[in-house]
Nucleic acid binder design. Structure first.
Length: 746
DNA sequence: GTTCTAGAAC
DNA sequence: GTTCTAGAAC
């Protein structure tokens, strides 16, 4: 056994500016028992900031000399640190030490370190830290690390310092992940907006990721300016003078906390599209007031509350003014300043339904309201959402009953969340309407219609529950109904039992969301909405009448007369024909073509075609296995396009390298790497279970941002994406690894 | 599905 | 200036 070999460690530090990387190195090296060299990008250029390649060169030299090294640079994203991981692989332990300290602390330290005075510097430091954190990808062992230490606070850091100081030349630290790993927490949109407000010149193009746990709420000691972001996060920056405090437009001195659920069914909603989607506030406020007025004119005793987190919010004041102009009953519609996830506990306002400004994926993350709601509701909301819908297109909404285990349900009394997707005017987000406000306003109107109709549908089904509750409770709060638009109260809701009964007679007007839907769906709004927005549930339109262009007939001709295309086809069987895709999008890309007449595409497939699907799958599998036997590094996926361009049902058998000159645009990529691509295994299961396949043929899927199919990183254009995927060896997402969706060499 | 190309983005 | 996208024609 080899006992006397000296070990060399390469420790890659990761952390934002101000996270304490250099201090960490200094602390270790002060008492270290083995020779360390610190490679610091900030000082590598003769005491000044240097380049990555200088760092790589010095690190390689130090390792060659048998010294252990600290790579002291931010290294926050995987690509940044990849070359350092690869460096000098022989007999070197590769470790990561992640200084994942609160952004507040990093910002504060950065500000102090620069020694500059004044709020602009503070803002700049915040911008830099946030820009860094935007790119943060926590390291994984699969990147090539043998050991990762996560530090979230000073105690963790001290522990890591001790561990590394104590290492003598013969020691080896155990491998694995140590310390607690936070979820990737990124930038807070509100922070960047705020920075713009204080005129920080170099602000960051925010990507809408959330920075959930960055800053504690009440910490305002160091600086005298606090900003309350949409996630109830307080960022401390500079000395701008004003202290923004929590507050609301709503009844001063109201005893709202005493309100019971049965007082008035209430929907609280954020302004849709005016934050990250950059929709014009003036135009948005017109739409809000218009749709609110329209909805209230048909509704019974319900309440709508427009919520914004910030005091002096422009959208709230615009809406207030316009609602007052239109004499909208302020008992039924008012604005409220507060956190939509804490309306009851912090604001005393009971809302049984809240709306979420969702993203199209209906996933947590993003900034602002979406992140806040998913975070406050806990993981059960994500699960419940998934049951209702897989994605959402602009102008639509989906109603999600909140499980009773959700904290939002338990402490806030929220029974439903309605996810709404509004129009996007932000060029950095999918489906940007590029200032087309005629379309934008139309979609925004649809979004509010969908939202309110969703709310109405909930109220319809909840009426009996509410009635029962109200009979037990006599609590009232006329205080809550104070006029918010400067008028006198007109209605004190003396008897909510009656009111609620009246509510049950609420009827929706012609549901725009239902247009083009079969009649049997039109009667049930919630159901129809779910189905319309929810390709997961079922395809509404039979879609068999699609007109195929002449150019789209090629596969059909081959399927019908394969013998006339001997040069193109690889194999002809009774049911299927196998051919190379004429424009392969990967090294290996075959099509298994159904020969049966009448199944142009997946939408035509029914249970009677199940055997055919199984044959196609088996043939595809066989071909993929053949490729795999020749090249074990390949990985295959078998599946269908939800809405193919070429007529005649065909199964794609495609290797996952996507290394092809024919892969040229977003549509090409997204058609194989979003839910638009339906795995053959899932299609067979669905056809077996439901008699047809789920189709995700929303165009928005094809114009999605470009994301790596392995590590899910986003890339600005096709060339950059291709360059990334040629190197990315991250494991595939878990969903792809399940259920044999991916085919790997045995 | 591709090709072509105007014009946006860099 | 070059690169890249996206829409129209096929």
């Amino acid at each position: 056994m080899e006992v006397d070999r000296e070990n060399i460690s390469k420790v890659i530090l990761m952390g934002a500016p101000g996270s304490g990387k250099s201090t960490f190195c200094d602390d270790v090296m002060r008492t270290a028992r083995r020779p360390w060299v610190r490679i610091c990008q900030d000082t590598i250029g003769n005491g000044k900031s240097g380049t990555k390649s200088q760092c790589l060169k010095s690190a390689a030299e130090a390792l060659k000399d048998g010294k252990s090294v600290f790579i002291d640079r931010c290294n926050l994203d995987r690509e940044q640190r990849a070359e350092f991981v690869k460096l000098g692989v022989h007999q070197v332990d590769v470790h990561a030490v992640v200084l994942d300290l609160p952004a507040r602390l990093c910002i504060s330290r950065s500000v102090k370190r620069t020694g500059h005075e004044g709020n602009l510097q503070g803002g700049k430091a915040a911008a830099v830290v946030n820009r860094m954190l935007q790119k943060k990808e926590l390291p994984k062992l699969t990147e090539g690390f043998s050991r990762i230490t996560f530090c979230q606070n000073e105690i963790d850091v001290q522990g890591a310092v001790s561990t590394y100081s104590a290492l003598d030349p013969l020691d080896t630290l155990p491998s694995g992940c140590f310390g607690q790993k936070k979820q990737d927490a990124k930038i807070q949109l509100g922070i960047m907006k705020f920075l713009k407000k204080v005129e920080v010149p170099d602000t960051v193009g925010s990507n809408g990721n959330s920075f959930q746990d960055s800053v504690s709420k009440h910490e305002t000691k160091e600086k005298n300016f606090s900003f309350k972001g949409p996630e109830n996060v307080t960022l401390l920056v500079g000395n701008a003078g004003n202290k923004v405090t929590e507050g609301r437009d709503f009844p001063k001195g109201s005893s709202a906390g005493a309100l019971s659920l049965c007082d008035v069914p209430t929907l609280a909603f954020p302004s849709i599209s005016t934050a990250d989607f950059q929709f014009n506030h003036e135009k948005a406020s017109n739409v809000i007031v218009e749709k609110v007025e329209e909805f209230l004119s048909n509704a019974g005793n319900i309440r709508l509350v427009l919520v914004d987190l910030t005091h002096g919010s422009k959208i709230l004041s615009l809406v207030r003014a316009k609602a007052a102009q239109k004499n909208i009953d302020s008992n039924k519609f008012f604005t409220f300043v507060g956190d939509i996830t804490q309306l009851y506990t912090k604001g005393g306002l009971r809302c049984n339904v809240i709306a979420n400004a969702a993203n199209w994926r209906l996933k947590p993350g993003g900034g602002g309201v979406n992140a806040a709601i998913f975070s406050a509701a806990g993981p059960s909301l994500e699960i419940a959402t998934k049951e209702q819908a897989g994605s959402l297109s602009p102008g639509n909404a989906v109603v999600v009953p909140l499980p009773s285990t959700s904290p939002l349900y338990k402490s806030e009394g929220v029974t439903h969340v309605i996810h709404v997707l509004g129009p996007n005017m932000n060029p950095q987000r999918p489906n940007c309407l590029e200032n087309d406000y005629s379309k934008g306003c139309k979609v925004l109107r649809e979004a509010y219609s969908s939202l309110f109709e969703g709310f109405a549908s909930i109220m319809k089904t909840q009426t009996t529950v509410l009635e029962a509750n109200c009979q037990k409770s006599g609590s009232r709060s006329s205080e809550l109904h104070k006029d918010l638009f400067g008028k006198s109260p007109t209605n004190h809701f003396p008897n909510s039992d009656q009111k609620i009964k009246r509510d049950s007679s609420y009827e929706t007007k012609g549901n725009k969301k239902c247009k083009g839907l079969p009649d049997e769906l039109g009667s049930d709004i919630a159901d129809a909405m779910v189905k319309k927005t929810h390709p997961k549930n079922e395809k509404i339109d039979c879609g068999t009448s699609k007109a195929w262009g002449s150019w789209a007939q090629a596969l059909y001709h081959i399927a019908m007369h394969p013998e006339e295309h001997k040069n193109d086809v690889i194999e002809i069987a009774d049911d299927v024909v196998v051919l190379n895709d004429l424009y392969p999008k990967a090294q290996n890309h075959l099509l298994v073509l159904a020969r049966m007449e009448g199944i142009d595409h997946l939408a035509d497939v029914r249970r009677e075609h199940l055997e055919l699907l199984r044959t196609m799958h088996a043939v595809g599998l066989k071909k993929a296995e053949k490729f795999l036997s020749d090249d074990k590094s390949l990985i295959f996926r078998l599946g269908y396009h939800s809405a193919p361009s070429m007529r005649q049902l065909h199964l794609h058998v495609i290797s996952q390298d996507f290394n092809s000159k024919h892969l040229k645009n977003k549509k090409h990529w997204n058609s194989f790497n979003t839910d638009f691509f339906r795995d053959s295994v899932d299609v067979m299961e669905e056809v077996d279970k439901y008699g047809k396949a789920i189709l995700n043929n929303d165009d928005s899927l094809l114009s999605m941002e470009l994301r790596c199919h392995r590590c899910r990183s986003a890339h600005p254009n096709i060339p950059r994406l291709k360059s990334h995927i040629s190197n990315c060896r991250a494991p595939f997402p878990a969903t792809l690894l399940q259920n044999c969706r991916l085919l790997l060499a045995a």
